[in-house]
Nucleic acid binder design. Structure first.
Lengths: 202, 202
DNA sequence: TCCGATATGTTGACATCGTACACATCTGGC
DNA sequence: GCCAGATGTGTACGATGTCAACATATCGGA
């Protein structure tokens, strides 16, 4: 007998409640921990109720992933990366280290954020973690630290480097590094990407 | 009524057969497509039989991942990266592009290879895709293209860059690029990493 | 050569999961 | 005030991972 845990027949704002419960679940267990039944249980609702708001488990997962990406973006702009008085290059470095730091600190969320084929439609809003990256690269061009030629497509080397290192540190061989080794390797990864972008030769 | 599809009561070499069937399943569907029941069905064996060879689904998945990593390593050494007469730098570039190419061509396998927390024990054997990378970096040092100082830990920037790009191209925003755009971005990622490694100023 | 230990495979069961369908209940616009 | 649509419930189905009890094959020593 599932007790509704509420007085009204309708929940009020179930969709949001399901996403919120999903965030709790995925935080520790990653995407695999997201069970439709568990999530509805936490919301005090029958399993089928979720289908009034999401086509299937996958769609709920995508909504959760979206929320996590927004959260990442927010944190990365609130970090030293957004501090005034820093050069674009310094901000770029902070953004990269912040990205890796988030991945290591919030493992479950990070994995969830990039688990599904999320075709973010909001090209305009761009609430992705990408935003902070774009900003710092633009600043580098303004400051003459990055040539306009090199600016186009510069997101890829940067994002790839930190994204890849984060995943190698979670599932891959970088998991075997000690804390300090990992920190050093992360810095090396970020610095190599920045150097590679701004190096004069070719 | 499950028909054994064989004459003997014992299978003969079930462990290998399960891994082989698992490779088929994960090739198209990735790790999510690996079902213990499906895999035993294909081997003509009851579901529980798998437990004589693997502690659980996870362990089977790890064995499959191991096989895929070996395969990747093999392919990357058979590719242009292993060709004679190429400089270390040229081989490094080929290894990187080969890695990304494998990820895009064999999506399911690539995802499977890095899905679990695989703590590869064989530090000596090193059958990882890493081997080809290590070799080309060493060659660059011998050829004076990479300073010995910069050699240590140089694997991380390289591996991170290509690994990250591969994943962004599969689940992330790089999936929206056209074929040619993606190819260009991949080249940019690899070249930036190499430039960053060998650039003089720190 | 037989025989028992051990490795390997089978059967049946259980809890859990995603999902579908029919039904119940609430709520806003005429 | 009532009816249509939105939202939540109940029940059911098939599939899955895993387990315990049982069956059969294989191999090394008496």
């Amino acid at each position: 007998m599932p007790q509704p845990a509420r007085d009204t027949y309708h929940h009020g704002n179930l969709r949001a409640a399901l996403v919120e419960a999903g965030l709790e679940l995925t935080r520790t267990g990653g995407p695999a921990a997201l069970s439709l039944r568990d999530v509805t249980r936490r919301a005090g609702v029958s399993p089928s109720a979720a289908y009034r708001h999401f086509a299937d488990r996958e769609e709920l997962l995508r909504a959760i992933a979206q929320r996590i990406q927004d959260d990442m973006a927010e944190r990365m702009q609130a970090s030293p990366a957004g501090a005034l008085g820093l050069s674009g290059r310094e901000r770029l470095r902070a953004v990269g280290l912040g990205y890796i730091g988030f991945a290591l600190r919030e493992t479950g969320w990070f994995e969830t954020a990039f688990f599904t084929n999320n075709t973010l439609p909001g090209e305009a809003g761009m609430p992705t973690p990408l935003a902070a990256l774009v900003e710092s690269l633009d600043a580098m061009v303004r400051e003459g630290d990055l040539s306009p030629d090199a600016r186009e497509g510069a997101e890829w080397p940067c994002w790839s480097a930190v994204h890849g290192f984060a995943l190698l540190a979670l599932h891959g061989p970088a998991a075997r590094l000690s804390e300090s080794e990992r920190r050093a390797a992360a810095a090396r990864v970020v610095d190599t990407a920045i150097t590679g972008l701004t190096a004069p030769g070719r």
